[in-house]
Amino acid sequence: MIRMVALRLALMLPILLGVSIIAFVLMRALPGDFAQASAGTSTISAEALDTIRRSLGLDLPVWQQYLRWLLAALGGDLGTSFTLRKPVLGELLPRLAVTGELTLIAGLMAMLLGVATGLASARLRGAVDWAVRAWNSLLLAVPNFVIATLIVLLFGLYFPSVGIFNYVPFAADPLANVASLLLPALSLALTVSVTISENTRAAVLEVASQDYVMVAKAKGLRARSILANYLVRNALTPVITVTGLQLAALLGGSILIETIFTIPGMGQFLFDSIASRDYPSIQGIVLLAATIVLLMNVIVDIAYARVDARVRYD
């Protein structure tokens, strides 16, 4: 078990290294001068620029620059934001918490909706199955930012009294905070629920044809107990895995959704950073998000392997 975790993490390292190279190269490939961008103005003396260059290590060979940057990043130093003039990491973490909460609520919503529709589709078949599959196809075609915009339009037209742009910080009022994230989370969740729904349907159909379900019927167990203990519990394993792997989609989606609903998370930070050409911040966000997604995939992998050993015993 420990060996397997170590192996998975070791396999992750070269990818992480590649990710860091991309994050580094992207920001060094910028049109224009990094030092000039850092100064935030184009009217600056040559001497001043040189000073900035030296202080940022831009006079060194590129590979040394990369190493310096990487070592600093490993130590938690993601550089200093051009616009905020503060360490990027310190700005990033509280925003990450907001995005994390939004992602979590959206993930739960997607799972609830996906499992419910997938289960109904697999168990009831017929017209319900057809309706769920049509609904899923449609949802797949509606991008989350379109859903979000339409929700905003809907509330603007018909329920203008509901303040949907009023983000409440968690510390101020936890309940109001969660409530203020419900609509944004819903716009994120709908698309992701499709994958979960399709996987639930397939898993339930697969499990229902297993011998142990026949045994459960032969025991005379009630339908409800067969559904809960035999069908859902077995089908849930692949479904949870799929949900974990949707994290990337949720994180990516939150960029748009936070911008639309003005939620002060990582997505909005990225959007602002791009608008103000705050490259260290962009770099930090990209690196952090990719690391989280990689770690999450490893966790899902390990969790699945553990469950798999239990499920596929032959």
């Binding site: 991309i22 989606g253 998000a289 990719a290």
Partner: peptide, 8 residues
């Protein structure tokens, strides 16, 4: 490349 969220 796969490690990045596509949209990000």
């Amino acid at each position: 490349i796969f490690a990045f969220p596509v949209f990000l």
